[in-house]
Amino acid sequence: MNIFRLAGDMTHLASVLVLLLKIHTIKSCAGVSLRTQELYAIVFATRYLDIFTSFVSVYNTFMKLVFLGSSFSIVWYMRYHKAVHRTYDREQDTFRHWFLVLPCLVLALLIHEKFTFLEVLWTFSLYLEAVAILPQLVLLQRTRNIDNLTGQYIFLLGGYRGLYILNWIYRYFTEPHFVHWITWIAGLVQTLLYADFFYYYFLRFIGGRGVE
């Protein structure tokens, strides 16, 4: 574990907590894409299949449970909780996210490190996470300005994988044989998708107004 990866995990945890805070306390999911949340639930479900078969550390297992639990509970809240569901913007959240799942699965079947069930699904989760934010970014453009909590959520979610890139650079130079092109390219694509959001976020942040 290095400082970049720890910072990345904490940023990711913070993004999830901000979203749960927003949904649980003010019972609102305005501006949040349910489709992105559903994709993230699939990402964690397919990435952490080894949670019971391979133990890395208490920290690792704990964080996996947090991300699994939070992503599924956010989907549950947005789908079935009356008060929260009422604030869900169904008309605007129309990105065909299922069209992202199949190409990622096909790509994982073609490009992976090992052709085993767990490895292919793990690779699929990497490709899917890279594009999972698209429905949210599209919704963002449609709903114009969003509240600060949603803006912070997206900022933290985009930032965590950027910190992971620093972690991969650090590990590449400090650990022999640490080369994982698939993870690196997927992580880079994922972070680059946030580029224009980051641009507007910093513009608004510097201007001291909400994210528009």
């Binding site: 990866r5 995990d9 080894d50 890395v56 550390s57 964080m63 793990w122 994982h180 993870t183």
Partner: peptide
């Protein structure tokens, strides 16, 4: 050796 690196990252 390309030992199947244990997935220690989240």
């Amino acid at each position: 050796p390309n030992k199947s690196y244990q997935k220690d990252e989240l």
